[in-house]
Design a protein around this nucleic acid. Sequence first.
DNA 1: ACTCGGATCCTAGCACCGCTAGACAATCAA
DNA 2: TTGATTGTCTAGCGGTGCTAGGATCCGAGT
Lengths: 192, 192
Amino acid sequence: MSVQERKARERAVRERLIVATARELAEQQGWDAVTTRRLAERIEYSQPVLYSHFRGKREIIGAVALEGAAEMAAAVRAATSVADGPRARVVALARAYLDFAARNPAVYDALFQLDGGLAYAQEDTPEPLKDAFAALMESLAEVAGDGVEPGLFTEVFWASLHGIATLTRAGRLLPEYAEQRVELLVDRLAVL
Amino acid sequence: MSVQERKARERAVRERLIVATARELAEQQGWDAVTTRRLAERIEYSQPVLYSHFRGKREIIGAVALEGAAEMAAAVRAATSVADGPRARVVALARAYLDFAARNPAVYDALFQLDGGLAYAQEDTPEPLKDAFAALMESLAEVAGDGVEPGLFTEVFWASLHGIATLTRAGRLLPEYAEQRVELLVDRLAVL
DNA sequence: ACTCGGATCCTAGCACCGCTAGACAATCAA
DNA sequence: TTGATTGTCTAGCGGTGCTAGGATCCGAGT
């Protein structure tokens, strides 16, 4: 019995190594550089080993995405928990979100730009994704305004942040407006 | 002289054929299906011909993006021009934008998701892109509110639309809220 | 009218991609 | 110790974007 447990443990370690290495490589050189060959070489195993853990490259991206979703949820909760008052909380949320996207571009891509084979806004959506959305809603619900469903408001606020995050990173928005965009978004969208 | 002119004309025709075919193929089967081999086969020339018109696949995507930017600008202007009053104009703009993204997913991807090798928000930004932004600003400037720069407001409003467009298409937002999202966005962001 | 030279195009191939079949080695059970 | 099972690797398939080099065509000049 113990032998099997040891093997299962070692497999789990290797799986985490694969995900961590993929993420690291993506953060360093972009997802285009994350090929199964390079990834295999970095973990010092042959290519087929990757396929004994994941169905394919897509699932590896998905694993990075789930890891990132958990971190983002934690980052948002950490930021909002130390803020006083509704407005400060929403500002903290927005900054934390955009900061996470800027600091972890590859993870953000895995979450929202690439196809990680994950289901969203459905029954079978993985728990970390639902929880990340919940983390946003916790602080946003209180500023949704009367008669506006918190879920709807969260979707719109989140979409706005997502738009700003992606367009900023693609160099499509003027850098000097960064802070003012957050202020404008919060002051207009949130009902304080 | 006339001979050279005829050749130049034929080359221009073929170039338009390449772009149109790439777009068509992308709309039908997604950009993944747009390979240089398939594209070459569809235009009934060999692969290297593509490279006598464009530096590579990226530039072909960029050409589709520019074509799309012009169409989007026209669609937005057409929608806003027949609307009465500021609010109706902004609603028309939002609907036209999201409608364009939904009806031309491949073109929208070429514009904002894929790397078409285009410069944005800079001096050397191609004219169609600047003009598309201008088309948005024309209707949005009047609802930016006192003391808010039209450019800044347009960026934020546009980013919100972009976020809704991409997240909707990725199946990350609840479909039943579609119309309410537009209403909420307009009523909150725009100063009427 | 005929050849020459340059423009134009295609065949073939490079290095790389994601993914997998099948041979081989290591490990455990009897 | 033997046999089976598990684990891993080598090698290769069909695909990708892109390009070198040879063939072919066609207008220009004698």
